[in-house]
Amino acid sequence: MSADNEIIFQEKIDAGLKIEPKDWMPDKYRKHLIRQISQHAHSEIIGMQPEGNWITRAPSLRAKMVLIAKVQDEAGHGLYLYSATETLGITRNELIHQLQTGKAKYSSIFNYPTLTWADMGAIGWLVDGAAIVNQQSLRRTSYGPYSRAMVRICKEESFHQRQGYEIMSKMSNGTPEQQEMAQDALNRWWWPSLMMFGPQDSDSAHTSNAMKWKIKRETNDDLRQLFVDRTVKQADLIGLEIPDPKLKWNPETKHYDFGEIDWEEFWEVVNGNGFCNKVRINNHINAHAEGQWVREAALAYAEKTQNGV
């Protein structure tokens, strides 16, 4: 029976049909999705912290309003993705528990500190830019709820990248100090942004099934290349220099060649030894604990009123 199910399942995938929550799916497919979508959700939620750090110090009211709206979008994106994960039979509390105990990961990029206002530009331009490349590809993922969340997120995400690029472009056309700040932010965020696409295909533990099941539609390396090709021209346009002496247009492949990524640094940060790993999780634990009485009060109120639980 299960063998038949598996054949029907793979036929659906091969025909480009979406899998929906009530459809039969292999256990490993379900587990892979829970891991990947929840990691994506946690990244959106933890990703609010590095930018939240600059809301009170935004240089103008306009910049502050925009940054608040962006951080609010990220909360929304986290919630769309938690919803998609919950359709696979795991509860929100279990997901939060996995995040807080380190059982589930989030994108390592958010373990780097945001030192100057230019970092708000670099995050929007590079980090959101890299996320968009990944998310645009995931709109075609085989799991229906994940795909629908991605469509919604992509629509909202392009404002994020443009606001980041606007900050970088203003600063690189500003005073020498501002130019220096913008270049410094690019120097610090460039390599971690390339790491966002994950290990090289030859080292990626999760790629093969993910491609067969069409959870992922393009490999880590292909997406990384697409991001590099797009971003080099954007940097040129605003007079910033990508911190990679090996970066060079290759007329044969029609892509930019780039230098070796420091994978040791990548694994260090993944394994909890980045600058901000502890503070990010502690902030989450504290915020969640501080909200406990609110959730309890809301449930108690609902029980006492007509329309309650």
Binding site: Y80, A298, Y301, A302, N307, V309
Partner: peptide, 11 residues
Amino acid sequence: AGNLHATDEEM
């Protein structure tokens, strides 16, 4: 459009 968590109709 999707779903969400809430304790009552108003929320």
